[in-house]
Design a binder for these strands. Structure first.
Lengths: 200, 200
DNA sequence: GTACGATACGGAGGACCCCGCCACTTAGCA
DNA sequence: TGCTAAGTGGCGGGGTCCTCCGTATCGTAC
């Protein structure tokens, strides 16, 4: 635990490379065993570096997450807060829809993440927070809209369009729909405006 | 193939009942093997009645899908087309978010469904089509919005909020957000210009 | 009431995967 | 050059999915 041995680092890199390819090919449920086989290491080694599938996926998509965070920081400076936020959402959609398995790692995992609390989600949350706040200040989005909401919406869209012939295009279509509103009406207080009623 | 034997029907019913319980308990990835065990039949029998997990899930949620279709037909008569559509979307959200695994069966499955083309999706599509058309005619939704779009959006939201402490409430929140629009402005054809964004 | 044929059943077996354990190798420091 | 702990790989156990095939059972015709 002190410092990682050199061979371990090499193995890690190799496994990660194989994992990327494998996830790209088979999506989020790529076989860890298969990754080990292709990488030419024992399956135990893979699991040592990545305890659990989620960890593996997080590692695979780490670069992309960082790219998204960097983009968010750039965009936080933009003059048009609304356009900036929308562009970032578009970028997120493109990433999530084109990289199989990425959406799965963005959806919060109930129990097993309390310890380090879904690393990428937190990371993204921090980086994008300013974007959303700027947009809220400009009146482009509601005050109660959180980063998590937006990410959830996009990941949901991505998951739902995963098997579509052209996932990226379809995801962007649905995103546009959600941005514009399915059926927007200016909020009127005291009307039925709070969303949906309970039903049977 | 002529007529089903009586014992087969009984087994089917029993397995279906167990499957419902099992899916409710463990979600969409409930073990077929486990279902067989609990139902006291061989695993082959389960898969004879339900070839593949999707078939099982479709059977499990068949009643709910029918209920939703019935609701849609009722609502098609409503005076306020927009309210009708929104209520139906709310109902769908409640169903999908409260019944674990239902969302998974609503998301179209690329290849294996071409033969009978995702039974429930088609069924819902047919029943809800009038609702959407009415709403479109009333100008409540865009002309290019399809049933599939709306269902995809809701199922996506459901998938993304699956692990949330209170999935139903959270799903409804996001649905409301999507209905109102994340940041509605009309840069798109044919819609009236609302002009300024800063509404709220 | 019985005998027969189609229908449905269930268990065995193969393939795959995840996971934990443990003896062995090897890198890195003294 | 040794020594030690980090790192490794393979094995076995438990689980699932899926297919095949002998067998029991149902429904019917006689």
């Amino acid at each position: 635990m002190t410092v990682r041995r050199a061979d371990a680092q090499r193995n890690y890199a190799r496994i990660l490379a194989v994992a990327e390819a494998e996830v790209a090919a088979h999506g989020a449920e790529a076989s860890l065993e298969q990754i080990a086989r292709v990488a030419g290491v024992g399956s135990a080694t893979v699991r040592r570096h990545f305890p659990g599938r989620r960890a593996m996926l997080q590692a695979v998509f780490h670069e992309r997450v960082e790219a998204l965070c960097a983009r968010a920081e750039e965009l936080a400076e933009a003059a048009d807060a609304r356009a900036a936020l929308l562009e970032w959402l578009g970028a997120l959609t493109t990433y999530a829809a084109s990289a199989r398995g990425m959406a799965d790692v963005l959806v919060p995992d109930g129990q097993a993440e309390a310890d380090h609390a879904n690393a990428c989600a937190v990371q993204i949350g921090g980086a994008v927070e300013p974007l959303v706040r700027n947009a809220a200040k400009a009146g482009a989005v509601g005050q109660d809209v959180t980063v998590a909401d937006l990410v959830a919406l996009v990941t949901g869209i991505t998951l739902a369009t995963e098997r579509h012939p052209d996932p990226v295009a379809e995801a962007h279509r649905l995103l546009a729909l959600a941005v514009q509103g399915i059926s927007p009406i200016s909020p009127r207080p005291a009307q039925d405006g709070d969303g949906t009623a309970a039903e049977r």
